[in-house]
Design a protein around this nucleic acid. Sequence first.
RNA 1: GGGCGAAUAGCUCAGAUGGUGAGAGCGUCUGCCUUACAAGCAGAAGGUCACCCGUUCAAAUCGGGUUUCGCCCACCA
Length: 835
Amino acid sequence: IVIPPPNVTGRLTLGHILNNTIQDILIRYKKMNGFETLWIPGMDHAGIATQVKVEEERLLPKGIRKEDLGREKFLEQVWRWKEEYADVIRMQLRKMGCALDWTRERFTLSEDYSKKVIKVFVDLYNKGLIYRGEKIINWCPRCLTALSDEQVETENKSGKLYYIRYPMKGSNSFVVVATTRPETMLGDTGICVNPKDERYQQLVGKKVLLPIMNREIPIIADDYVDPEFGTGALKVTPAHDPFDFELSKKHNLQIINIMNPDGTLNEDAGEYAKMDRFEARKKIIEHLKSLELLEKTENYTVPMGICERCETPIEPRLSKQWFVKMKPLAEPALEVVKNGTIKIYPKRWINLYNHWLENVRDWCISRQLWWGHRIPIYYCKKCQEMEKSQIPDPKQDKGIVVSESKPDRCPHCGSTEIYQDEDVLDTWFSSWLWPFATLGWPENTDDFKHFYPTQTLATGWDIIYLWVARMIMAGLEFTKNIPFSNVVFHPMIRDEKGRKMSKSLGNSPEPMELIEKYGADALRLGLMLITPAEQDVLYSEKSIDVGRKFCNKLWNAARLVLTGFPQTPEGFPDELSDFDQWILNEFNQLLKDAEFYLNNFEFNSLSRRLYDFVWHKFCDWYLEIIKIPPYNQKNISKYLLRQVLKVLHPFIPFVTEEIYQKFTKKEKSILLENYPTICDIKSSTTMVSELINLVTEIRNIRGLFSLPHNETTTIVISTDDERRNLIEKNTTVLQKLAKLDSIVFGNKPKTAVATIVLPRVIGYLILKGVDINKEKKRLETEIQFLTQRIDELKNRLNNPRYFNQVNESVRQKEEKRLEESLVKIEYIKQAMENL
RNA sequence: GGGCGAAUAGCUCAGAUGGUGAGAGCGUCUGCCUUACAAGCAGAAGGUCACCCGUUCAAAUCGGGUUUCGCCCACCA
């Protein structure tokens, strides 16, 4: 396993705890099952995220901008930040018990790793899969960089739809257009209508006068325009809308960029130059009103893109950026999931994966940032100048050199005036190499040969596009192999009200404080107990307390086992009591379930199953029984506890190790032991179950008659020989567990009694204040219930269709239920007569 | 607009291939300081499994539809 590298932006969150707990469980489980395991740690430089953090927390308070420092000085600051938080993250991963191999720690911006990133860029460029293009991209006016489509989140904001009149040239009439971003009108270079729209057909080819700017712009026709929306006429702003840009190319419209990178308007916006885009919106509306060119305003929900890092509204902006052609990479990635070479858990995420890859668009990878891998593109000043005067075709990248290291001379003209592109690469352009770059690729290292492809990637579903799909593409493209066989998507952690964890809401708990308060094991187990496979986790601190209580319970149980039975052997004893067999049988079932759940990455189910076994089987019944002589002299508690600790260890490594050391006297870590295997059970364990049922029934009736728990009572039992033997053999156990002073065999005593009926056993509890009529009623209700059930079962079993279709084991179970019910009803009737 | 998911006890959720009298944790109530554990033990109450129709000997589970909620994607400005 290679860790999904945490961002060096800050401390780990609860989400990281969840993510790493899952991986640690897998690593420890496989290790104990005899596999060679490796879990590689590492961190991600997280380009934009870290840069924004450092600016906000290190520079802003001092009132300086990064431009004041300059690129080099600023990067020094970021590296210092990185070192600080890398230390914190290392400490956090250790505290939560992650069995990582720290000798192999990696970083996406280390010198070594950077070389791999640059190599990949150059390779892709040479293969024609990277190109420079002038397109409308997502621009964050706050971060001053381009973003990929995946780094933009869409929020539906309530806004307005403005209807603006564009006067026809040489006429008194208007064409009315509807827009949500009226300020962009300053950059309009056309009006577009649907050619089939009869309202406008005669206007196509004519011109309107753009208000405020007083520019003549043509009316064109294109199928793209939906006649139903707004007025059916679309204002075309090529520099500020992706489709308008396409239209402008198709119809040869002028392209006018009216905005500066920081979201203020530029000189092409006339009198609005230097004004912020939202301020300009208000002013322009006022302006249009005064010209009587604003026809109306409607409320409208606007899907607005915001920067995932700073939540600033994105501005679609025309600019020259570097792109990766995704289609050729996507096809093989789709195939490996389709044919099952890579398995995705839970399955439902496959849909999402496919949908994205089938509709994938080219990936904008250049960022106008400082923190990141500098793009290995070098420009020749001379050629560029030549290009401007001689070769006007912008598609030709003349004067550009793509190289892993800085070239001395321009290969075209021999000039030494060469400078590198200022931009860096998208942070995900390094992350997508993670599974193999961490193992030494492109060198054919021992690690790479031995450990690649990796087995399992565990991560949150939120980065399925940003990261997972791209890693699969990169793995197939560069290593000709899948990067991992399994992808386990775990849910997002939300607060109790279902809201996302965020700093501004203050609902994001600090994991280290939780570890301080409850212990790392409690945190790990508590999270596993509440983390469903397919739904988001609603976190509350209570669940961590549940984890802590469990650890405490285990600790106390271990205390009893280690000190309470000094005579018992530590190994597997020669002779097993009925109760030993019973608990071993239960343990075998647990092991079967554990294997199933782990193979299917169902950690939640397994953690619940473990909890239930340890608490409600091992502690509540087995440990209680073996306190009672003669079982306190001879039992398998020490053996079984050791096995149980091993099964629990992947979930709660610390407390299990601590207890285990008490056995081995600090000689060997429990992690180096073998995982338990299923052992033979010779005899049937149903008799013990019957005994347990009898105890439960007695406790139940005692409760019904409000008998205080410190008072004992007498029971008279009428049963067959087999059960009489069983009960006689376990008299003390029964007495202790059911609070009985004596057990007598025989028929109903003359005193008033409460009646307990099990198949083949009638028990009469001698109690005060028993109302015979109420007892009769209680038993009659039971008879009624059983009669109904017997009818149902008989009907079913006599039905040939049932008989033919149902599988053997189910039918046997049903037959047994019928038999038990028939026996039980006879016993109840017998008990009724005695009343 | 397209797609995905959810609806089960007061709350948060389990219930794989249809088949036990639908479970757990928390909360509530009753009784217990029983020598591992009061951070605990023994019990109880509490559910028309959102609604309708269908398939089946049998549906919380499968199919169709309805309602409510959540998420993702999308170039109707």
